[in-house]
Design a protein around this nucleic acid. Structure first.
Lengths: 205, 205
DNA sequence: TATTATACTGTACATATATTCAGTATTTTT
DNA sequence: AAAAATACTGAATATATGTACAGTATAATA
């Protein structure tokens, strides 16, 4: 799948919105009307480009013969995802993976695929909109960037914080709540294990 | 919804199968080919009957302008839920239901069933863990209790707030952010329309 | 520097498609 | 028993629509 341009994205979005609204794909003229083009060939060339890049397929000689390609790298199936609870509050402890229950969820639900839900205890990330009992969709990975919300383990304690690398040896775990303090880790002295990062959040009222 | 005949059911199935296979609806000729009819008018009359009975809707003068009406008497496990955007920030305006896209989601995903996702603008509910661009699962209902997070409309303005009935005539809409002020509504003077209430939240990082 | 991709306008036309009209026949409803 | 709905064939046609061709212009790539 090659890169999409911003205009091609607009056309692709237009097709999707038209489909949602009407139940059938747009004509070239419909796209022009929607996006302000004055020639049907403007739509045509964009469609050809989108087809070439694999985002849509076009049935030749067929009116409205556009279909959006299921570009799923991850298939659109549902899966059972375990819900793992953090045991303690404040600086929470996991001890062992404790599956409370499972949730059936499309596996392409979030931007990235993920491995389990983590049930949040405490309010250390409340200013990031993460509240008690929220379910964080966690992708198991050690590839984290500054600003990512990470699930980190320090010995037996598991915590959810913003990740910030200060220097090659110093990592800071930053809460989103002024009542909590930053955790500063010197990697030469302490062992930090990144369990994964948040790729989404689920709350059930 | 009147009764469907067996032939009309065949036509309806044919449309659904064609849609699943190609991504766009069939023409009259396509239906004929599929079901063995020799005249496009055979398909036409069946389509008219199906439209009259409410199973489909037909866009006049539009090629392949058939869409199957959502008669969700038989709910499936997964459904497509529309994502509706709030246009302005602060005290946001909806104006008209603007379907940005749809999300495929199990229909028993939250405690209660729901009707659509509302994309949040602004931070007026941030202390309730509702951040910009979060998706609130909204159940259309006017049956709300004190403390519920409601989607309320005041004239053309749509807003998400805590619901609090002060007296039979006075309702207060309470934000979860000290930078915002309570909205006090005298039901005798102003018109308050409760669009629904939040039954869950979804965030995509 | 030449070439390809992107991003359009504008015209033209073959054909894909909806849709009407004229029939025939059977079943269901009033 | 008459009227309406169902279930078709067959032909005709206006128009909706895809698509090719001729241009112009800019940005990206080789």
């Amino acid at each position: 799948m090659k890169e999409i341009t911003s205009q091609q994205q607009r056309v692709l979005d237009c097709i999707q919105i038209y489909l949602n609204k009407t139940g059938f794909p747009p004509t070239r003229a419909d796209i022009c009307k929607e996006l302000g083009f004055k020639s049907p060939n403007s739509a045509e060339t964009h469609l050809r480009a989108l087809e070439k890049k694999g985002f849509i397929s076009i049935e030749k000689g067929t009116s409205r013969g556009i279909s959006i390609t299921n570009n799923q790298e991850y298939p659109t199936n549902n899966d059972e995802y375990p819900v793992i609870g953090l045991v303690a509050a404040g600086s929470p402890t996991l001890a062992e993976e404790n599956i409370e229950k499972t949730i059936n969820c499309p596996n392409s639900f979030f931007e990235s695929n993920f491995d389990y839900f983590l049930k949040v205890k405490g309010l250390s990330m409340k200013d990031a909109g993460i509240m008690e009992d929220d379910l964080i969709a966690v992708k198991k990975t050690t590839d984290v960037k500054n600003g990512d919300i990470v699930i980190a383990r320090l010995e037996d304690e598991v915590t959810v914080k913003f990740f910030k690398r200060k220097s090659p040896k110093i990592v800071e775990l930053e809460p989103a709540n002024e009542e909590f303090e930053n955790i500063i880790i010197n990697l030469e002295q302490d062992e930090l294990h990144i369990e994964g990062k948040s790729v989404g959040l689920l709350r059930k009222n």
